[in-house]
Amino acid sequence: MFPRTEALSSARTWHDWASLAGRLILGGVLLVAGALKLPNLESSVIAVRAYQLLPFDLTRPLGYALPIIEVALGLLLITGTFTRIVAISGGLIMVGFVIAIASVWARGISIDCGCFGGGGEVEDGIAAYPWEIARDVGLIACAAAAAWWPPRLLAVDTWLFAEPAPLDDLSETPQPQTNRSQA
């Protein structure tokens, strides 16, 4: 899945830390955002409707599904499970949020983004749009970091995707351990 050269080098590089930070920040935000919405899914539906982007009949399923998907992606990112595909999915969701907020901004609709629960029309929602878009762009950067550099710290993937240890040690002489098994 990841470049072989990465797997063979043993030193922790800043890449590893950037990947870990991206994972934890994006995962943490997704987990919190989803968990806050889970207890009140009807509210999530109203938040989706306030964007006036989707056909009415799709807003209910999407309003129910989004918090669950956010929690799932958040947990997978934090644990570093299937990191690359999950980070890419999380990044794409953020791209969708940026497009949605830009679209209500362009149409002059004033809403609470409903990012962390709540949602619906409010008096002075437009003032918050630049900051919300900036935040989501930052999260896209986190997704990119987590997807680009392989997760080598505190990640389920290091076990899940571990290459089998080389088996050329059937001879009696002990072989030096490779670094891979320590990852």
């Binding site: 129910y64 669950i68 799932a72 299937f82 899940l160 995707f161 089998p164």
Partner: peptide, 25 residues
């Protein structure tokens, strides 16, 4: 063995998420 492990984990996670989403809807 590695491939089986990855496929099983992936399928289990995907199934769990799908059941949660469609079950809730």
């Amino acid at each position: 063995k590695r491939l089986t492990r990855i496929v099983i984990a992936g399928a289990a996670i995907a199934a769990l998420v799908l059941v949660a989403v469609f079950g809730t809807i």
